[in-house]
């Protein structure tokens, strides 16, 4: 049991980083991680050594994060963000590029550079709250569209629009602040 407890505790820094990416709030991330560790320690038999401990704890944490987002959504619903244009300025009247985007040179090499992730976080921070939350639920937590719709109270079509806006905005931002420097 002590081995299990210390193994669980060793995962705290990783879990805190994981929760911080989604929640963007240190206190909320601490709460989610604390709830995760308590749930794990209360029921070690559920782990049973059948998967990687970090993977198992991350699975619990995802549920805690979604619970937190649900509570936060009830307490202070996010604005609709309906008035955002869909990058109309990038396209001409016929819907084609005004200036065609250029391909990023070797983007995978950026994944080895810490400064790239600082730029990515800056770009995430610039997204409207609901857009960022939707995007991170999809790409960071790995939630399906159905789950996101249910938790955020949006239609699938609106969800896809929010994800499109997030991807386009992040691409534009990274082009400006990283790849196009």
């Amino acid at each position: 049991m002590d081995d299990f407890r210390s193994g669980v505790e060793q995962q705290r820094p990783y879990l805190l980083r994981y929760a911080s990416v989604q929640l963007r709030d240190r206190d909320a991330a601490e709460d989610a991680v604390q709830e995760t560790l308590l749930a794990a320690l209360a029921n070690p038999a559920a782990f049973g050594g059948r998967s990687n401990l970090r993977t198992w704890l991350t699975g619990i944490l995802k549920h805690k994060i979604v619970d937190h987002l649900r509570r936060a959504g009830r307490e202070s619903p996010l604005a609709g963000e309906e008035d955002t244009d869909d990058f109309d300025a990038l396209f001409d009247a016929r819907g084609h590029w005004r200036d065609a985007p250029v391909a990023w040179a070797d983007p995978d090499a950026s994944l080895e550079q810490r400064q790239f992730f600082a730029a990515l976080e800056d770009c995430l921070a610039r997204l409207p709250a609901k857009t960022a939350r939707t995007f991170l639920m999809r790409e960071h937590l790995g939630c399906g569209t159905d789950e996101i719709c249910k938790e955020l109270g949006v239609t699938p079509t609106h969800c896809w629009v929010l994800l499109y806006r997030a991807r386009m905005a992040l691409r534009e931002c990274l082009q400006t602040h990283w790849f196009g420097r």
Binding site: V21, E121, L136, H140
Partner: peptide, 9 residues
């Protein structure tokens, strides 16, 4: 990139 962000946040 997002998948690796948790390790580099």
């Amino acid at each position: 990139a997002i998948a690796k962000l948790g390790e580099n946040t």
